[in-house]
Design a binder for these strands. Sequence first.
DNA 1: TCAGGGCCGTGACAAATGTCACGATCGACA
DNA 2: TGTCGATCGTGACATTTGTCACGGCCCTGA
Lengths: 203, 203
Amino acid sequence: MIRLLLADDQALVRGALVALLGLEPDLEIVAEAERGDVVVELALETRPDVALLDVEMPGRDGIAVTAQLRAALPSCRVLVVTTFGRPGYLKRAMAAGASGFVVKDTPARQLAEAVRRVHDGQRVVDPALAAESLASGDNPLSARESDVLRAAQRGTSVAEIAAALFLSEGTVRNYLSSAIGKTAARSRAEAVRIAEENGWLLS
Amino acid sequence: MIRLLLADDQALVRGALVALLGLEPDLEIVAEAERGDVVVELALETRPDVALLDVEMPGRDGIAVTAQLRAALPSCRVLVVTTFGRPGYLKRAMAAGASGFVVKDTPARQLAEAVRRVHDGQRVVDPALAAESLASGDNPLSARESDVLRAAQRGTSVAEIAAALFLSEGTVRNYLSSAIGKTAARSRAEAVRIAEENGWLLS
DNA sequence: TCAGGGCCGTGACAAATGTCACGATCGACA
DNA sequence: TGTCGATCGTGACATTTGTCACGGCCCTGA
């Protein structure tokens, strides 16, 4: 039996995944989480063989959880599941120690198979996404530029961003300007969108 | 047996829901769709009793599908399922003729029960969401203001919005300004965010 | 019939935004 | 050791954005 941990913030999806995977005779769900920040603790208690982690979760995002889980319980492999096939997500998930990366667009039948492959020590990655990920290049933003873009995500003004990050307004404008340049955008809002779509704004 | 149609663009979620609802002895999934614009045709072929529609779908959004489905096959009740509990979604779904509205945060066990209630002619609505929906008031934006905000969603400049909508730049600025006022925002980007969160930018 | 509202446009203005040039410090790295 | 890049700041400037006042057209409801 492969022991499974499931983490997804949408109760309906989580429950449905339980039903789906519960149909497989060789899989057993031993734990469920709806927040990222309880996964490691739960894993230490229940000792799963494979953890299915969503990226978008309250508390802590799935990629950060991946890194911590790999450190705390190396015997547990991680399969990351996500709604959005952002190139940066895949790259960072693999760098964090994930064994597989699956988008929610993939047929349901392949999920159990992916779990088995991951448990088997193989890597599982959507080939199309892998290609896109390679093509999109690395995150060109510096840490500060990411911070400023993240703070600008909700339509915040320069003054508010500066106050939130304890920077001068001029500095914020400089970072925004260089972020706009690096993302090949033509306005702050477009830069935010491009960075989001590439998965460059996590953590 | 209650005959079910399922529409959700994420194959994994759709498959998982099939597994979940397939466990219920009185439910039978007779059709699946991954695009909004094929649902009506599919429903006319398979004659389901209840349709489970996601709001966010390619082709046609679930609320537009609801209206068309109600017209084409009045015997089929609609239960709308969505990731985002936007107040405006609920209001528009009910106005379009949906019998129920469920967010993906609700426990999986309640889904089958919701399907039965809807099939029974009852209405199913998350009470918390209903309250929020009433509190948030109606969409204050005029059709044109919504158009302009929608066009501004991706960080587009005034000149580009004007070109896309065949308007003068001054007019676009006026609409943006009044939309900013009506949403109580302080910039275009914030107005876009507020309108999105309230579900005012559909269709 | 008239008032009101949505729609479309113009022009002018203040404020915010984006760009550039210029320093300065610091750590990493060859 | 020197160089490079990231970080933080200043000041000046052009452009864009947001606001306001005004005009006109059309439709709807009182």
